[in-house]
Amino acid sequence: MNIFRILGDVSHLLAIIILLVKIHRSKSCAGISGKSQILFALVFTTRYLDLFTTFISLYNTVMKVIFLICAYITVYMIYVKFRKTFDSENDSFRLEFLLVPVTGLSFLENHSFTPLEILWTFSIYLESVAILPQLFMISKTGEAETITTHYLFFLGLYRALYIANWVWRYHTEKFYDQIAVVSGVVQTIFYCDFFYLYVTKVLKGKKLSLP
């Protein structure tokens, strides 16, 4: 466990909590893609099945359980509790365009051809593209609430920190998981455009709006 990994996990947790707090306080999930949140719930569900088979550490188990619970609460808030505020009109990304290739790829390129391992691989590939419905929604409406951009910033920061974590692990323990690293880099690239807007607009006190 290194500093990048810890900070990455903290950023990830912070992003999820920011989103939950935003929905809870404003009693609205306007501007949030329910589809991205369903994908994240699916990512955690398929990845953390090893909760039943492998014990890594107390930290690992607790974080997994927290992520799972938060993901399902978020989906519940969007589709049940604050359903009326959900902008389904603009959440129109076609999920099959992500799910079909990701499923196919996880069968083709994995560490071993076993159900748990294929599901783990599926979750890694799916996570790398799960934010796309959210980014699509922002590009469609042309704007995002500032708190939503903070959510995206911490989610992107988590990915960037994980890359630093892998560089560190490669040099210190020769650890290198190609599937996770390649997917993680792809995922981080999706945030680059957003990072640029975040730094040039949101951090200067302006609202994120696209021309």
Binding site: R47, D50, T54, I56, N60, K64, F67, H111, S112
Partner: peptide
């Protein structure tokens, strides 16, 4: 040969 990985990250 494909190695079995221990997935210790989140």
């Amino acid at each position: 040969e494909k190695k079995s990985f221990k997935h210790d990250e989140l």
